[in-house]
Simulated scan of single mutants.
Amino acid sequence: MSTMNQKSRRFSTEFKAMVVAEYYSSALSMADLGRKYGILGSSTISKWVHKHESREGVSSLNTRTLSATMSGHTTKSKEELLAYIKELERSLELSQDKSIALEHFIRNAEKELGKPLPKKPFTNRSKS
């Protein structure tokens, strides 16, 4: 049977949730999960994950990275883990401070120049 003639399959909400949960909790890629469960579309699982992220407000990269990072710390003591968390909190605070400083810098530069600065690199600038 050719791919063109195959009917699209419908997956239950429960099945989709199970696959997305497995994506977050395992080291399997979306392609690996597709092969495991016989899901043909290369973007099918990606769509499910992105839909979950938009509903839950989470980032799969951050969640998977955090899981992988923390799995390397299973042999550490509670005190070591608390110290690591404090270090991460300090790093986050520094990043947030840098972001605020840059926002102030941009606002001041816009005031001095009298026009808004592009917010994204390589954006098409209107000709004025």
Rank of each mutant, 00 (worst) to 15 (best):
M4W: 04
M4H: 06
Q6P: 00
Q6G: 01
S8I: 12
S8A: 09
F11Y: 15
T13E: 14
T13H: 06
E14Y: 09
E14N: 05
Y23E: 05
Y23L: 09
L28F: 13
M30G: 10
M30Y: 02
D32K: 13
L33F: 05
G34H: 11
R35V: 06
R35E: 14
G38E: 10
L40T: 11
G41D: 08
I45N: 03
I45K: 04
S46A: 11
V49F: 02
H50M: 11
K51Q: 14
H52I: 00
E56H: 14
V58L: 12
T63L: 12
T63P: 00
R64M: 06
L66P: 00
S67L: 08
S67Q: 13
A68R: 15
M70V: 13
S71W: 00
G72M: 10
H73N: 03
T74D: 03
K76W: 15
K78Y: 06
E79R: 14
E79G: 02
A83F: 01
Y84R: 11
L88M: 12
E89M: 11
L92T: 12
E93L: 13
Q96S: 09
Q96F: 08
D97T: 02
K98Y: 07
K98E: 13
I100R: 08
A101M: 06
E103P: 00
I106D: 01
R107Y: 07
A109V: 14
E110S: 05
K111A: 07
E112C: 04
G114M: 04
K115H: 15
L117F: 13
L117C: 08
K119L: 11
P121G: 00
F122V: 02
F122E: 06
S128H: 07
